[in-house]
């Protein structure tokens, strides 16, 4: 049986059209990306304070401390993190100038403490807590929605996420005031 040319053309058109639909559907699906929710506490991720191997804290403890928290997620080989480390304090002082309550500052990484030491050396003063995640693996970072460094989270006094920032920037001053002022 001979196939008519018009049937071939029609078949090609149908296949092409169907293919385009499948392709668009495939393109539009988003692979599962986890992360925290604005207005909610962070997912629970355990961490160790640098130099205190036996002290384990958890990100969900922020909900019970009645203190707002600035959490900077860094990696020791991240050059933007290094730049941010050198000048963030002055910039944050401007943003948080009018806040009448203490702010806890935590720099957190998923790298082991040994790899982090050159980055944190000399920066333990001034109330900054350098912490490493427990266990030190990538899943913890993804649980917190950290897909690039530096990522900064500002948590309010109830431990709820107020602002997320990527890059060498800090939460805006008005967000900091709203999150951290005494009730």
């Amino acid at each position: 049986m001979r196939t008519r040319p018009t049937n071939v053309v029609a078949l090609i058109l149908v296949v092409t059209f169907a293919g385009q639909l499948v392709h668009r559907k495939w393109q539009s699906r988003w692979l599962p990306i986890t992360g925290p929710t604005i207005g909610e506490p962070l997912p629970a991720v355990e961490m160790r304070l640098a130099g205190q191997r036996n002290v384990v804290a958890s990100t969900d403890e922020f909900t019970s401390r009645n203190q707002c928290t600035l959490m900077v997620f860094f990696r020791p080989n991240c050059s933007v993190c290094s730049r941010m480390r050198t000048d963030w304090r002055e910039r944050w002082a401007v943003s948080s100038d009018s806040i009448d309550a203490p702010i806890r500052t935590i720099w957190l990484t998923d790298h082991p403490e040994e790899a982090t030491a050159p980055f944190t050396a000399g920066y333990h003063l001034g109330g900054i807590e350098f912490s490493t995640m427990v266990p030190s693996k990538k899943q913890s970072a993804e649980l917190l929605g950290v897909y690039g460094t530096p990522t900064t989270f500002l948590l309010d006094r109830a431990g709820r996420l107020r602002v997320g920032v990527i890059g060498n920037q800090l939460p805006p001053a008005d967000s900091a005031r709203a999150a951290c002022h005494k009730a």
Partner: peptide
């Protein structure tokens, strides 16, 4: 963009 990043969060 990530829903939980408000400042410079474009991928």
């Amino acid at each position: 963009t990530y829903p939980w990043i408000q400042v410079s969060g474009d991928v």
